[in-house]
């Protein structure tokens, strides 16, 4: 696929607002995601984090404002046009949203099987590869109903990554995982960002995972790679935003977040 202008931001959310019936969920939310950067969205339960991701995917239409993905305005697009935009997007849904009539392999390879011309044995190899990243190779031919909650979550992560999208949206991808598995997933996010130039939005309650991704960097070492502490410039590229009752209450990098004085922020961080 042809890559749009490398300098332009991959996602621009501009003054987006949305209400379900009477209930206002988002009010004038704006932010920008640069290519190869990470944006962490924090916020209490019900503050509209999942909703904003769905708007970026075009699954929900905002009531007002505009959304651009890879330079194209998507909030006014038809469903058919959106399909093209979604080819470069991957999303991990909060509840996993695995197709329960399909096996793990069919779930992970879904996009490749259904919407690409890749030969089946090549898809199978790719599926094995991504399942390997998150340590689920033994479960490749199981049904989703035979997996634990955390395993389902990891399959969902693998599914989002399988087609190598340029933008990944993670909705609580590490919530409910044990610390060791969570770190594996975090490292995968860092690796995709730094080695494959994938841009990502991470929605999470797990501050530890958010800070991990924001303050680490993946560098190539010979054949493999290594995760090291990021330098100041790299740390700056990972931005945090905090949603509170539908508005952006904080925007800044990890250091600024740690230093924030705001009472609400402080109670959220502790």
């Amino acid at each position: 696929m042809e890559r749009p202008d490398a300098e332009a931001p991959v996602i621009v959310v501009d003054k987006v607002s949305l209400a379900f019936d009477e209930k206002v969920v988002l009010k004038d939310v704006s932010f920008t995601l640069e290519r190869g950067h990470t944006k962490v969205i924090l916020g209490a339960s019900g503050s509209g984090k999942s909703t904003i991701l769905k708007i970026i995917l075009g699954l929900l239409k905002p009531d007002g404002g505009s959304v651009f993905v890879n330079g194209e305005r998507i909030d006014t697009m038809s469903e058919t046009e959106l399909m093209q935009v979604r080819m470069d997007l991957g999303m991990v849904f909060q509840e996993g949203a695995l197709f329960d009539s399909l096996t793990v392999a069919e779930n992970v390879g879904f996009k490749l099987y259904e919407e690409s011309t890749m030969p089946p044995d090549e898809i199978r190899r790719r599926v094995e590869e991504v399942l390997g990243f998150i340590g689920l190779n033994d479960f490749i031919d199981r049904m989703p109903s035979e997996l634990s909650g955390g395993q389902r979550r990891r399959v969902a992560i693998a599914r989002a990554m399988a087609a190598k999208p340029g933008i990944l949206l993670y909705d609580e991808a590490t919530t409910g995982l044990d610390p060791i598995t969570a770190i594996t997933v975090d490292e995968e996010m860092v690796k995709l960002r730094d080695l494959e130039n994938v841009s990502s939005i991470i929605v999470t309650h797990q501050l530890r995972d958010a800070f991990f991704v924001a303050t680490r960097e993946a560098v190539r070492r010979g054949d493999g790679y290594e995760i090291v502490a990021a330098d100041a410039r790299k740390c700056d590229e990972a931005e945090f935003i905090m949603l509170k009752e539908g508005v952006v209450a904080f925007e800044g990098n990890a250091a600024e977040l740690r230093a924030a004085k705001d009472q609400y922020l402080r109670s959220f961080l502790s």
Binding site: K54, L57, G58, L59, E79, T80, L82, M83, R86, M87, L89, G90, M91, F93, Q94, E95, A97, L98, F99, D100, F110, K111, E114, E115, R159, A163
Partner: peptide, 12 residues
């Protein structure tokens, strides 16, 4: 959310 996931994966 499986229908949403389907749409997100580019399938109508």
């Amino acid at each position: 959310d499986q229908i949403n996931a389907l749409r997100a994966l580019g399938t109508d």
